[in-house]
């Protein structure tokens, strides 16, 4: 079975500053991959290289066996959808309209009934019914984030790329969103996967199947949460001492990282 996403030898620099060095990654179907790393490790850059927001200096990215450089932007946006860290806007559209933008790759001009249905479903799925017709720019940061995620979901891609989708959300919504991504990714029939850049180690540990640890632009570790999130790795990459405690939660077996203190350099 071809992997959904295959990255080989990816490199990216901002000027003389090399941000990503020789990244190799293989993501199959129904995988929830969490990307962890410190600020500036290259998490956002990595995601942006996958959907051609940024053009890598070297390396290839293939989605379902096709090189993304050979795909049109429209086809690429059918294959992957992206949730940026923040969406700035000077104009206001209703929430429904913003989510409808996710259907753009599938619409030539007219919106079909099917499109209407999908958008409604997505809005309900993400619990946005109460403000489906409010203006996007009048929402709080957290509400906006959920709307942008809804748009990405409505886009119905094979691969989700989410850059810190829970940064503005309250605790309940954080859990809710992660659960929903998990739910989408678990549907074997659709075979979708998600790559999520995230700061919250514990959320990553609870919900992701796989954790990729980025350090200084390279992949330091790639595996299950328990394989990757060791006290040594965390100390090395994040510069904090911690205790890693295996835990059983209602949702999945996982672990909990209890951060203790900064490590003096």
């Amino acid at each position: 079975m071809t992997s959904l996403l295959k990255i080989e030898g990816l490199e990216f620099s901002w000027g003389s500053n090399q941000v990503l060095k020789d990244i190799n990654l293989d993501v199959g179907r129904n995988e929830f991959v969490a990307i962890l790393g410190v600020n500036g490790a290259g998490k956002s850059t990595f995601l942006k290289c996958i959907n051609r927001i940024l053009a890598p200096a070297k390396g290839t990215v293939e989605i379902s066996g096709r090189n993304i450089a050979d795909m049109s932007l429209m086809d690429l946006s059918k294959a992957t959808s992206y949730v940026p860290q923040s969406v700035r806007t000077s104009f206001s559209m209703s929430v429904f309209d913003v989510v409808m933008l996710g259907r753009r790759p599938h619409i030539s001009w007219r919106i079909s009934d099917d499109d209407h249905e999908r958008v409604s479903e997505t809005i309900r799925f993400l619990g946005l019914e109460d403000f489906a017709f409010r203006k996007f720019d009048r929402l709080s940061g957290g509400e906006r984030q959920r709307v942008v995620i809804a748009k990405a979901v409505a886009q119905d891609p094979m691969l989700f790329l989410l850059d810190e989708p829970t940064s503005d959300l309250d605790l309940r919504n954080q859990v809710s969103i992660m659960k929903k991504i998990r739910h989408i990714v678990s549907d074997v029939e659709s075979g979708k996967s998600a790559i999520v850049a995230i700061h919250d180690i514990n959320m990553a540990a609870r919900f992701a199947d796989r954790v990729v640890l980025l350090d200084g632009g390279s992949i330091k570790a790639d595996g299950t949460p328990s394989e990757v999130l060791t006290e040594a790795n965390i100390a090395d990459v994040f510069g904090v001492s911690c205790d890693v405690i295996p835990e059983e939660y209602g949702l999945s077996s996982s672990l909990q990282v209890l951060v203790k203190d900064e490590i003096e350099k």
């Binding site: 959907n51 051609r52 927001i53 946006s77 992206y82 969406v87 559209m93 933008l101 753009r104 990405a152």
Partner: peptide
């Protein structure tokens, strides 16, 4: 029209992710 909806809402990154160059 559709491309303008995308561009006017959220900047270049958002546009690319929706299939608009």
């Amino acid at each position: 029209a559709w491309d303008l909806n995308t561009l006017s809402l959220g900047g270049d990154d958002f546009a690319i992710s929706s299939g608009v160059d």
